[in-house]
Write a protein that binds this DNA or RNA. Sequence first.
RNA 1: GGCGGCGUAGCCAAGAGGCCCAAGGCGACGGUUUGCAAAACCGUUAUUCGCCGGUUCGAAUCCGGCCGCCGCCUCCA
Length: 492
Amino acid sequence: MGLQLYNSLTRRKEEFEPLEKGRVGIYVCGPTVYGHAHLGHAKSYVSFDVLVRYLRYLGYAVTYVQNVTDVGHLTDDADEGEDKIAKEAKKEKTHPMALAEMYTRSFFEDMDRLNCLRPDISPRASGHIIEQIELVKTLVETEYAYEVNGSVYFDVSKFEEYGKLSGRNIEEMQAGARVEVSPDKKNPADFALWKKAEPNHIMQWPSPWGKGYPGWHLECSAMSMKYLGATVDIHGGGLENQFPHHECEIAQSEAANGVQFVRYWMHNNMVTVDSQKMGKSLNNFITLKQAFSGAHERLTRSYEPLAVRQLILNSHYRSPLDFSDAALFAALSGYGKIADVVKGVRKMAPQAPEGDIEGEVAEQLEQFKGRFEEAMNDDLNTSVALSVVFELVRLANTLLEDSSTTAATLGAVDDLFTRLGGDVLGVVKDEYEQTGRAGEAMMDKLVNVLIDQRNQARKDRDFARADSLRDSLDEVGIVLEDTPQKTTWRMK
RNA sequence: GGCGGCGUAGCCAAGAGGCCCAAGGCGACGGUUUGCAAAACCGUUAUUCGCCGGUUCGAAUCCGGCCGCCGCCUCCA
């Protein structure tokens, strides 16, 4: 059985088949860059990163598009709604584009540290105003949209399938509407495609309806069509965007093109903190920079970025992740265990005895690979996939303790770690920096001076002195590990 | 009010009718190893899956009720 993905549109797992054999187009809703990325962003983008990586592992040629929203995302849909970027820029006393640029860089920096592959295309909403205006023009011409006072709204009543993704209908929503409805709208559910800009609004462009700026939902449709065509294989995003954002995308795209917009809709679940949704507007979020540095009251220490990745992959993308320092700490330990054994395998392989790969080991590796793929094929069950990696860890550690293990065997183990743990899950690095920088080389030398002294003391059976040296190193966070051959050290 | 989801060991988390007296990780405990540690390996750590009923030869998994929690319906990954 091939890859099965849960399609939010049909509410069940479906065999994945791209429109064009061997090629996959993916569009994922990117961040609105008005603040540093937080754990919620991490869950979303790590999840879709693994999807992209796995599709490539399966041999698909993937085009991965993830937008950057730098204009048009309003604080709410009412008339007083402010542009989020413009609002934050005013607060930080900077130009909206400067603010967007700064947080865009910050975002990529954090994603790089999480080992998320860069999207093939990262289109900015502000760079696609023309395409967005064209799309609005089409919708006005076909009477799916109407202009009022310099703003253009999508007429939801004209699009019969509105609500098919989120399973709601217009009548129900009217009953539950909490937002004050703009008097310009024909129907409360209508949404803005183009908004008229007040003279003091910095971000504005000329259009057939006067000066204004695009509505938030519009950019994803315009850019998805531009780079991936009228129909895209997969569109991903956070569960909270299912309605209204994705529903609106479907309406405007399918109204304009007359063909299905997205074949597989994928939504990742949310990150909660103390069972409360973590969100920018709730101000209870932990940014990735805080997680990496430990600068947050809920964190007891700084965390290796890939420990965050490991924590995310430990659960399913469609399950909520309730964040805690304890859970992240556990993920860090597990991540470290994998890293340690991979380092060990790579170090030992060149000096291991020559010879063929052991048949029994080869068989086991093949079996791990099969179970890993089976788990990933089941709607990306990374939790089970990771458990297979941990079984590989145990096997590798056992092989390392056996001095007769051949170089070929260790090579095959390394290869599987690299492919499954590295290429697909992204928690195994291609290279682990040991003594790259000058400071680290110096450090290594200094620690080794002390290690030599301690080993001399041990040889002299002066264990008091040996232990005292070890304790001193322990105080500065350096742990020693003795093996029959030599003593190694690592940071706690 | 409408729509949707969740509740599995001390913690995180898979499993969705029999392979389950329930994977994997963290932690804890015991053992092997070690001068002692650390690391690693081996073993133990849920006869039971929120509670109560039902369907079934058989249920953590299906159905009903109850309790608790969460999300969406307004911006959020």
